[in-house]
Amino acid sequence: MDILSKKVLIPAIVAAVAVGAIVVVPSAVAAAEEQRMGHNMPQINGTVNAGEAMKDYLNENVDVTFTEATETAQAEVEDGRIVGGHLGVVQGYVVYRFFIVDPDGTGYMTIVDAGNGEVLYTSEGMEMGAFHGPMGFGGQSHWKGHGGWHGAGWR
């Protein structure tokens, strides 16, 4: 496995696990609420496992690999370098979201459809000083309201 594959495969796996965790967290919250209310429900075993259903859904619907989406996104910004990205959900759609920086230090967000590999959106460029978060950027991001870079990663 070459280095590019390792660099993109690991974040893709982490993103898939994170998407699965989105389904599990509400269950934990519901269980805590039941205990708080005094209900001691025993462990149940239903017929539809949400984690497995999410994994099956992604396997059946995500036809574009992280590597393919990375190449597509990088082509959107001349001489740009991808500094972050992941598989996620934007406005109800499964997409890859990337943060790209050009040689002048201007940052862009590009969204690639996970089903067909088409670029759905590339933001206007913003100065790197306007971005905050990981990789040496602190505080709040100007992209926060646009569902962009936030805290320890993409929001």
Rank of each mutant, 00 (worst) to 15 (best):
G88W: 00
P42A: 03
G46A: 07
V77R: 01
A30H: 07
L87N: 00
A12V: 01
A50M: 13
A21L: 08
E68G: 04
E78T: 13
P42F: 04
V25P: 09
A12N: 01
V29E: 07
Q43N: 14
T47P: 09
G51T: 14
A50V: 11
G20L: 03
V77F: 10
P11F: 12
P26M: 01
K55Q: 06
E33C: 10
V83Q: 08
L58H: 01
F66A: 15
A18T: 10
P26F: 03
I82K: 01
E76S: 15
G51Y: 13
M41H: 11
E33F: 06
M41R: 13
G46W: 07
T67I: 13
A53S: 09
I22V: 07
E33S: 10
V25R: 10
P26C: 03
V14A: 06
A18H: 09
V77T: 04
I44Q: 15
R81A: 13
E71A: 14
P11C: 09
G84K: 04
Q43C: 13
V89G: 01
T65F: 00
D63A: 09
M37I: 13
L58N: 01
A12D: 01
K55A: 11
S27K: 06
Q35C: 03
V17Q: 07
E68A: 11
N40L: 15
Q74L: 06
A21E: 06
P26E: 00
L58Q: 06
V14C: 02
I22S: 07
V23A: 14
A50K: 13
T72Q: 06
V62I: 13
V64P: 02
K7G: 08
V62Q: 04
D63K: 13
L58E: 02
E78G: 04
T67P: 01
E78C: 05
A16C: 02
I13Q: 14
A73L: 10
T67K: 08
V14S: 01
I22G: 08
T70Y: 05
P42Q: 11
K7E: 15
V29G: 02
V64W: 00
G80H: 03
V83I: 14
E60T: 04
T70G: 08
G20K: 09
G38N: 07
G51M: 12
T72C: 05
Q43A: 13
I44K: 15
V48L: 08
Q74T: 14
V17S: 04
A73H: 06
Q43G: 10
T72N: 03
A75I: 14
K55H: 02
T70Q: 12
N40P: 02
E34F: 01
G88P: 00
E68R: 10
I22M: 10
M37K: 15
I22L: 10
A53F: 13
L58M: 12
D79F: 10
I10P: 01
A69N: 04
Q35W: 08
V29I: 14
V24H: 09
Y57A: 06
F66D: 00
A53E: 11
T70V: 15
V83R: 02
G80F: 04
I13E: 12
K55I: 05
A32G: 11
V24A: 12
H39G: 03
